[in-house]
Simulated assay, not measured.
Amino acid sequence: MHHISEGELRAELVSRARALIPLLAKNASQTEAGGRVVEDNMTAIEKAELFKLMVPRRFGGLETDFRTMLEVSRALAMGCPSTAWVTTLMNTSAWFVGLMGAQSQQDVWDANPTVRMAGVITPSGRSRRVKGGLKVTAKWPWASGCLHAQWAFVGLPIVDESGATIEQGMAIIPMKDLTIENTWFVAGMKGTGSNTIVAEDVFIPEHRIMSASKVLAGDRPTPYKEEALYHAAFVPVTALVLVGPQLGMAQAALDFVIEKAPKRGISHTTYENQTTAPTVQLAIAEATMLVDTAHFHAYRAAADIDGAARQGRQMKYVERARVRMDAGYVARAAREAIRILCSAHGASSFAESSPLQRFWRDSEVASRHAIVNPEISAEIFGRSLLGISGGVSHLV
């Protein structure tokens, strides 16, 4: 088989994602109303192999890089942000599995490389030590993609025989061992179905559990040292992937407002259409600079992560802090661009029939994800620039 370069593979995958935009846009209202991504979308994304971005080539996956993942997320979000979010989180959860030991990877992918994985890394619940592993009882809220997944990747406490927590861990559990509690009632990102997954005294064998602190420090159970992708910096990855959909929302909102401007007047003014109004011209210029800024920061952060992984080096604390800052900055720039565009387009931006109000709501909600929080990220980054590492958050 002709080995294609990462660049060629990226171009091919992004064009597949772009080809799905009309379908996703057509189904966006239904995805929202149903509180879950419609099956047509999931089937089309699977057929385009876009759930395989982070699956190792050993299992027939694509094993791309984070720049490719951002661009695919961005393209899908131009059609439906909820669908893009679910796809992104599923790909990220697959990446988490790629960090695990060989047996865990086989458990998940041996039978089927297109198997889908939902994930919540925030540790929850209580564990008890039993022969051969742990039994866990927990609730993990905001499990994006859980309605479409066969496996869950979760955070949990690792305990000793006496029940004392030794450290935080991460584990994989088949969805058939879990139940889903319907808790996702939100103003935006309604279609992600990010409900709560529940474990009642579920057994997890030892080999399906790994130490969170080791993973954060770059010590991964995966024996495949030559696979650069699975040695990328953990927290920078988890922060950056969340802003891929923001890029698409902001870009799509900008394209929409520019496309409609010649056909729209401005009520109670002498302007025949928006195109001739300086207020709109200035707003479009400002929004475009914000959208571009979001892209520049996102792509630079991806280059930093991918570059360090390829070189096989650990990112320095200040570099990791900067990626968190970049992610927060992207979210804020995209959100602000959409706000300006809604004002320029006018009050009909908020008609339920307009895609603008969905981009607005989705970006307002998605950009509030805890690990993207711009203020906390700025604090971490500012401290790191002044030579202070640690404190604030262990997620750097």
Results as ranks from 00 to 15, higher is better:
L247R: 06
W184V: 00
T293R: 11
Y317W: 05
V318D: 11
Y224S: 12
F256T: 13
V257Y: 01
I197M: 08
K225T: 14
A199C: 03
A261T: 04
M189V: 06
R310S: 12
R264N: 13
F256M: 11
F185R: 14
P221G: 09
V323G: 05
W184L: 10
H231T: 14
A261N: 13
I209A: 03
F256L: 11
G193F: 03
D304S: 09
A283D: 10
G312W: 08
G218R: 01
P262R: 08
G248Y: 05
A321S: 09
A302I: 08
G188W: 08
T279L: 01
V202F: 01
T288H: 03
D326F: 13
S194C: 10
A285K: 11
A232T: 05
E206D: 15
R300I: 00
M289K: 13
V186L: 09
F203T: 13
V202R: 07
F185Q: 14
F296Q: 15
V280H: 09
A239E: 12
Q281A: 11
Q251L: 14
V202M: 08
D304N: 02
A212N: 01
Y230M: 06
V291S: 03
A283I: 12
V323A: 00
A252R: 03
R313K: 14
E319D: 13
R320D: 11
V237C: 13
A199S: 07
P245V: 05
E206L: 00
V237H: 08
E226W: 09
H295P: 01
D304R: 09
R208F: 09
E286C: 00
D255K: 04
F234A: 12
G193H: 05
D306V: 12
Y224V: 14
P221S: 13
E259H: 10
V318W: 03
R264D: 10
P245E: 04
Q251H: 10
G312L: 06
L254Y: 08
G188R: 04
G191K: 02
T196K: 07
H295I: 00
P262W: 02
P262M: 00
I284H: 11
R320Q: 15
M289C: 13
A261R: 11
M325T: 00
D326V: 02
I209C: 06
M249E: 12
V241H: 02
M289E: 15
A294Q: 03
V243D: 04
G312F: 07
T279V: 15
R320H: 08
A228S: 14
A321W: 05
M289G: 14
R324L: 14
L282F: 06
P221T: 12
E319F: 02
E200I: 02
